[in-house]
């Protein structure tokens, strides 16, 4: 295992430290699929996930939140920068060297239908992690699986059933059990409830919170749904076009958002309260394509308060370390 080599110190309470991470995708076009450009899906992100906390990662489609999550899990290499997990630099490790670390970081998928192997019984799916890492003997594995099924609210007697016999909410419980069976430290939840019905979402959100309390898990909770993130997260990072534009404790971010994008995002969520209708949409335009080279602030085209400086200079995430940080010139200048 490679030890962290960067000059930075890694504090003991930091489970994951992301420094200057970028993820690039080649843009190909024409008959020969020649590489004609690069999309920076994630562009220079610094982030810390502390042990035992839930870090919410919020953004709209195409903002790079899923790519960032997959880079943190080592599922794709970082094209720039470094991901340090529990003292190990994982961002450039080949899959073989990553395997021992895999059991410590797991993923809960968005789609409970696509993420379960339709040809495997749910017992086999849940047990897979134990089989792969050779944990315990057959009987012990079955006992661990049964215990995990109980924890997530599934009857262990159903272990020999196939996924198609289950509802979406129950499948998501299977996916959670599969991720937790290895007793991981970090669990990335990638939109874990957005494919579920409203009445089921709350069951799964409660379960995710209960399991964190029981098992001492650290969550990176990726979602486009601000209400859901407010419900589960301790700290929240907001992404726009590959950059983190604001990061703060939950109360600060939802109570006193500073970045104009965060403010618009919060205002755009339809509230279940017909007496407080908005008279107009809080933000015009749409997220532009990420394959353009930006000069200045990426949000300025849609920003209602942009100034000249936003056109020429890109704002950095500024603010106290571990405090409320915002990438906006107007916030930096004290508005």
């Amino acid at each position: 295992m490679t030890k962290a080599t960067s000059g930075k110190t890694h504090r003991a309470d930091e489970l994951v430290t992301v420094s200057g991470v970028s993820a690039h995708f080649a843009v190909r076009s024409g008959l020969l699929r020649r590489r004609t450009g690069t999309v920076k899906a994630v562009d220079g992100v610094d982030l810390v996930i502390r042990r035992g906390e839930t870090l919410g990662l919020v953004g709209e489609s195409g903002c790079g939140k899923t790519t960032l999550a997959r880079t943190i899990l080592g599922l794709r290499p970082a094209d720039e920068g470094e991901v340090v997990f529990d003292g190990h630099v994982i961002s450039q490790l080949p899959p073989r060297d990553l395997k021992p670390l895999r059991r410590h970081m797991q993923l809960i998928f968005q789609d409970p239908y696509a993420s379960l192997d339709p040809h495997a019984t749910i017992g086999r799916s849940i047990r897979a992690g134990l089989d792969i890492h050779g944990i315990g003997r057959a009987a012990e594995r079955s006992a661990i699986v049964a215990d995990m099924m109980n924890r997530v609210g599934l009857d262990p007697a159903l272990a020999d059933r196939f996924p198609h016999e289950f509802s979406g909410g129950q499948r998501q419980r299977v996916g959670i059990a599969r991720a937790l069976v290895l007793n991981p430290q970090l669990v990335v939840c990638d939109e874990p409830v957005s494919a579920l019905d409203v009445s089921i979402q709350s069951q799964i959100l409660n379960l995710i919170k209960d399991l964190q309390a029981d098992l001492g898990l650290t969550y990176l909770f990726v979602s486009h749904n601000l209400a859901v993130v407010e419900h589960v997260a301790d700290r929240v990072a907001v992404m726009y076009l590959g950059r983190i534009v604001e990061i703060a404790d939950r109360e600060a971010l939802f109570g006193a958002p500073r970045h104009p994008y965060t403010q618009a995002l919060l205002a755009a969520v339809p509230q279940p309260d017909p007496t407080h209708r908005r008279t107009e949409a809080p933000l015009a335009g749409e997220t532009p394509s990420p394959d353009v080279d930006y000069q200045g602030c990426r949000f300025r085209g849609r920003c209602p308060v942009a100034i000249d400086r936003c056109r020429t200079q890109e704002p950095e995430l500024a603010g106290p370390v571990n405090g409320h940080r915002t990438a906006c010139w107007r916030v930096a200048d004290g508005l």
């Binding site: 895999r102 998928f109 696509a114 040809h119 495997a120 897979a128 792969i132 599969r178």
Partner: peptide
């Protein structure tokens, strides 16, 4: 497919994924 990704996340190698997950799916 995502369920193959799930095996990768768990740490499964190419052989296990090919024979244990992909082959049954294409049968």
């Amino acid at each position: 497919r995502e369920y193959v990704d799930a095996m990768r996340v768990l740490g499964a190698g190419t052989l296990r994924i090919t024979l244990g997950t992909i082959l049954p799916s294409i049968l």
